[in-house]
Design a protein around this nucleic acid. Structure first.
Length: 690
DNA sequence: GAGCACTGC
């Protein structure tokens, strides 16, 4: 056949067609697009030109100061009376420095010859890196008063910014005088029912104004939008392979994002796209496309899948990708696979790696599921796995924040005392998820969907998320069954009985499903080395009797935590955020994200036993009676106890190897004994004093 | 004292 090769590419609706075309410039690509109307673009300079707005050196200074995105900082930035003070606080105390910093280094007089003096003044002073809420407010009011009818859609980077503008508009007298507006927020953490409100059509004479994140860029389409206001920024999650964690950064959008946002205006009639950035920035400073995903995310799962294809030279293979990742990123991913035990020192896929590749989850979550099956706590571990890989079922409606937090805390405190045999507060976000899911599941089966919906309302749970969690649990359970990790005490006779079999508490894989200590041990075994330890100075021996599990560690102030390399913070949404007294000085977590600080999203307090059994290398300091795990996790233990744990670890490793290499076969009686002994140890820590 | 958004085996 002659002529250019024909390439057929199936595209999802959200794929960036223009970026794709740029990759395949050698052959024509036909792109089908929905019908749209022309959209008029109004840049920052045009906004300044057309609305009465003067950026004074005072207000510009406030914009200069607010480079950080913390909420406190956001609030300071927009407060009108305290700007001078804020400047001092920001380190701009000296007026001479202040004046210097007010000059926009990007300002190019020659570009704006045809604009009026005030516009030029504003452009010379403005710091585009900071969102100007005063301008935003004026612009919204301007459009509300004079713009043609139709909904307004405002793109902002995050929830804090949405709330800030919402508060500003509600407080604005001018805006109140209009009294004909619908103000709505759109964000992924808003309950689906509230999200749906953005689709309603307002009555004649009322204008709908939606404040949204980039959820409205592709995921949610509001048909009647006529005016788009684009602040030009969004948040991006970037994985830093060097530090081994993700960071949420507020960055400039790309030209492609800007095009997509603009397109949100012209779906029912010609529209307007108001940009809070200059034409110069769009054309010369913004990247044509967003940083490709392969360069932003951890490559662990991708590398595991590639290993499964028996491709040995990982780095060379990935260099063939459209956007080859950095070598460092590949190295980090391989190091994680080695750490988890999915590949050996020679980088060959192990039996464990082979099983993990078949599970559609993060490798550590996959490992946690295998441990859950082996240690008889499958049901709760599947729930935790589903929550961590999808999303938490807990809702936090802004208006009922405190009540929602109390509801979650009640699940963690095991308030109903029906989910776990241990009735103590569990200090665990993960066990709160389990309690919430189990409670919901019981109500669904006993009283039906209607009652369950009421239960969700009362307890601030998301019904769609719980349903998704249920489906994911079933999927995971079927995969584990196929692999041979799930064994029934008596054969299941029909396919129907397999539905929700993972919930069956009479089966061996669930013998310990109601014992928090066992579940937490499985968590630690899977998620390790994602653990944090209380700062030495924060550890104060508690009031209860020594040696007892209830001993507790009390601290008058909030304890400080470390991941071994830096100070880390329990995320404020965690049930452990305000706890002063912990059962043990150790936490296990799944995700560590840096925003304003390094936060641990979901945490569970775990005992030193879990770390001794499932953590890294144990080293014993015979003289001092201290044991160190992985060189930084320190605990007190008699030398002979530590030696016993070291031996137990060797026995456990061989049991795991046996069951992972031949999951279909029944475990040898010795292995069964080892597992039984370890579970006894986990359940009754007084057996060996640590 | 804080939460861009998707997807898939």
């Amino acid at each position: 056949m002659n002529g250019p090769a024909l390439k057929v590419i199936l595209m999802s609706a959200t794929m960036d067609s223009e970026r794709l075309s740029s990759y395949f410039s050698d052959c024509p690509i036909l792109i089908a697009k929905g019908r749209t109307y022309p959209v008029n673009t109004i840049y920052l300079e045009d906004i300044y030109e057309h609305i009465e707005y003067r950026l004074t050196s005072q207000s510009a200074a406030a914009l200069q100061g607010g480079l950080k995105t913390s909420k406190k900082h956001l609030r300071n930035q927009v407060g009108s009376g305290r700007r001078r003070q804020d400047l001092v606080w920001s380190g701009f105390g000296d007026d001479a420095i202040l004046e210097d910093s007010l000059v926009n280094p990007l300002y190019n007089e020659s570009l704006y010859k045809d604009y009026n003096a005030m516009t030029r003044n504003n452009l010379a002073l403005v710091n585009e890196d900071v969102i100007d809420y005063e301008l935003l407010e004026d612009l919204v009011i301007h459009i509300a008063e004079e713009g043609e009818s139709g909904a307004m859609l405002i793109f902002l980077p995050g929830l804090a910014e949405i709330q800030l503008l919402l508060d500003r508009l509600t407080a604005s007298q001018k805006f109140k005088d209009l009294a004909t507006e619908w103000l709505l927020a759109l964000h992924s953490s808003i309950a689906p029912d509230d999200q749906r409100k953005v689709f309603r059509i307002p009555p004649q004479g009322v204008r709908k104004i939606v404040l949204a994140t980039n959820i409205a860029e592709t995921s949610v389409t509001i048909p009647d939008v006529v005016h788009v206001i684009d602040c030009g920024k969004h948040k991006e999650n970037r994985f830093d392979p060097h530090r081994g964690m993700s960071r949420m950064l507020e960055v400039w959008i790309s030209q492609a994002n800007a095009r997509q946002r603009k397109g949100r205006a012209g779906r029912v009639q010609p529209g307007n796209h108001f940009c809070l950035y200059t034409k110069y920035r769009l054309e010369n400073l913004m990247h044509p496309f967003q940083l490709p995903e392969m360069l932003r995310v951890p490559l662990v799962e991708l590398c595991l899948q590639i290993k499964l294809l028996s491709i040995n030279n990982m780095a060379a293979f990935l260099q063939k990708a459209l956007d080859p990742p950095k070598l460092e990123s590949v190295e980090t991913a391989l190091a994680t696979l080695r750490e988890v035990g999915a590949v050996n020192e020679q980088e060959e896929l192990t039996a464990l790696g082979y099983h993990l590749a078949a599970l559609p989850v993060d490798v550590r979550i996959g490992k946690m599921m295998l441990y859950g099956a082996l240690f008889g706590c499958l049901s709760p571990v599947l729930t935790i796995a589903a929550c961590l890989s999808h999303k938490s079922p807990f809702l936090v409606p802004q208006e009922q924040k405190n009540a929602a937090e109390r509801a979650k805390k009640a699940f963690s405190d095991n308030a109903e005392k029906i989910h776990f045999e241990d009735d103590a507060p569990q200090q665990s976000d993960h066990l709160a998820m389990v309690a919430a899911y189990n409670g919901w599941r019981q109500i669904v089966t006993k009283k039906g969907a209607g009652a369950a919906r009421g239960h969700c309302q009362e307890n601030f749970l998301s019904m769609p998320t719980l349903k998704m969690i249920r489906d994911m649990r079933n999927q995971f359970a079927m995969l584990l069954l196929d692999m041979g990790f799930i064994k029934f005490s008596q054969a299941i006779d029909s396919k129907a009985a397999l539905t929700d079999f993972a919930d069956n508490l009479t089966q061996p894989f669930n013998f310990h499903a109601q014992q928090p200590a066992v579940i937490k041990a499985a968590l630690c075994a899977g998620l390790y080395p994602n653990v944090a330890a209380m700062d030495e100075k924060s550890v104060v021996e508690g009031h209860a009797s020594a040696g007892s599990r209830r001993a507790g560690l009390s601290s008058l102030q909030k304890p400080r935590w470390s991941d071994g390399r830096r100070e880390v913070f329990i995320h404020p949404s965690s049930v452990n955020a305000d706890v002063l007294e912990f059962w043990h000085p150790f936490l296990v977590f799944h995700e560590k994200v840096e925003t304003s600080r390094v936060f641990l999203r979901d945490t569970s307090v775990i005992s030193p036993y879990a770390i001794l059994l499932f953590g890294g290398a144990i080293s014993i300091q015979h003289q001092t009676g201290h044991v160190t795990v992985d060189g930084w996790l320190e605990m007190k233990a008699a030398a002979q106890t530590a030696v016993l744990f070291k031996e137990l670890r060797i026995a456990l490793d061989s049991v795991l190897r046996e069951s992972i290499e031949k999951p279909q076969e029944n475990m040898s009686s010795r292995s069964t004994e080892v597992i039984r002994f370890i579970i006894e140890l986990i359940l009754d820590e007084t057996k060996i004093a640590v």
